[in-house]
Amino acid sequence: MTARWPSWRTDLAISLVSFLGGLVLYAAGGWRVFLGGGPWAHAPHWVLLVPMTVMAACCLLRRLAPGTGEAVGLVALAADTLLGGSLGTALIFTQVVYDACVYGRPWLWRANLIGSVAASVLAAVAGVVASGDWRGVVLGLVVALVAVLPTVTGISVRQYRDQARVQRLRAEEIARLAAWERRQAVADERARMARELHDVVANQLSAIAIHATAVLSAPDPSPQLVRRAVEQIRESSVSGLAEMRQMIGLLREDGDPGAADPATRPGLASLPQLVAQAQADGLAVELHTGGVDRALPVSVDFAAHRIVRESLTNAWKHGTGSAVLRVDVDTDRVLIETDNALRTDGPPPGGGHGLIGMRERAALLGGTLSAGAEDGRWRLRAWLPLRHSEEATV
């Protein structure tokens, strides 16, 4: 809306509407309604249009120079008062005061508040003294309506806008911090996987060296022994190349390879231990497995272990004490599914970095992971392809 209707057009529209409204009040006889007379009361009625026009022009300065606009408006109001006081000029002045409190500097609204209250009191006293009747206090009420009321309204709007701006900045800062934490969690997970793959490739190279040493150590190796050794060397090298390709994709930046986290080294072979640990923590696990005794690429095995462990941890933290775990392995993929009821007194799982790490592992292996709450239950489904079982070409 702001791009289609710039602020200067809004200011111009307010100024024109104020001027036209003043003309309507003038035509309806809204002139010399306050004092009924004044030092310049003998002037023609149309002269009242001059301060009214100046007052409407002050609305053009509502954003650009609100303090200057209010100062000019005070001069125009003083001239209008000397001419007898017209209703249109007084009403436009309320807009000028309001704009000065909303868009002006902080000291301006404070000065307006003090000055308008003081002017209202002085006008009430002057009205009583001039008329000799207590009903002269009405003059102070008129000044309060023209000056105090728009000042208070402008201060309220200004404070609301300031609070909204602070809340918006705070929300943006929280969003930036959350984005940074997500990036950091992804980077940590990639570094963890890179360390694991570093150990895997080292193991494959060690196996190649062992088989080559066995052949070289034999005094008169038979063709069958040489063939078996070469086959083992080829199998280890192909697997190592596949793992190395993935490690190069993970290592976006130089880092300390370090030692692999011992908690992530086991694979699906440790599935019974994971379930037993979850049950020891108080989570009743209903386990369904299929094909978990198949040989898996080490990176997939590590990722599957990590996903199972994190999903059971989420079920224990945020569930009602029971979960269903399904792990199915076939010739081309590993399928992991967990299903548990959610507690009503806690947030759903996935608010931390565990879910981010699981998704990152699945994505880097070419798989998918979906998780979410549905009908009071938390369901997670991970699909990991066994692509590293294919032969790599040099």
Rank of each mutant, 00 (worst) to 15 (best):
D133K: 14
A57P: 07
S217N: 02
T338G: 12
V152E: 06
G367A: 03
A371S: 05
V329T: 11
D133M: 14
V285W: 00
L49K: 00
Y98L: 11
A71Y: 01
M55C: 10
N112P: 04
R333N: 04
R333W: 01
A207F: 03
R265L: 11
G154T: 13
G73T: 13
C101D: 15
G366P: 13
R183A: 06
M193E: 05
A41T: 14
D220E: 03
Q277D: 09
G115P: 10
D256Y: 09
V166I: 12
S120H: 08
A144Q: 07
A65I: 07
A363C: 04
A43P: 04
Q273A: 14
V24H: 03
V142S: 12
G38Q: 13
A209G: 03
D293A: 10
T81Q: 15
W40M: 08
R32Y: 03
T53N: 07
V137F: 12
H305W: 07
H288L: 00
R309F: 06
M193K: 14
R110P: 02
P221A: 01
L141M: 09
L49M: 08
D339T: 09
Y103R: 13
R306L: 15
A171T: 08
A194L: 02
L20A: 14
G346K: 05
Q163E: 12
G88W: 03
T81L: 15
P44I: 08
E181G: 04
A27I: 05
P257G: 04
V238R: 15
A362T: 06
T68P: 02
T320P: 02
S322P: 13
V50Y: 15
G127E: 10
S322D: 06
A3K: 03
L197Q: 03
V166F: 14
S18W: 14
V201R: 04
A41Q: 06
D199N: 08
V226A: 14
G37W: 04
E390K: 00
D332P: 05
R387P: 13
A284Q: 12
A187H: 08
V138H: 00
A242M: 06
G376M: 09
G282A: 09
W46F: 11
S18F: 04
R32Q: 13
L77Y: 00
Q167K: 09
V121E: 08
L149K: 13
D261M: 03
A56S: 11
L139V: 07
I356K: 00
G249E: 14
R176P: 00
S86C: 03
H353P: 00
R192E: 14
R333T: 02
M1R: 03
S322L: 11
A179K: 04
L108D: 06
L283N: 04
T344D: 14
P223M: 10
N112T: 07
V308P: 06
A207H: 07
V152F: 12
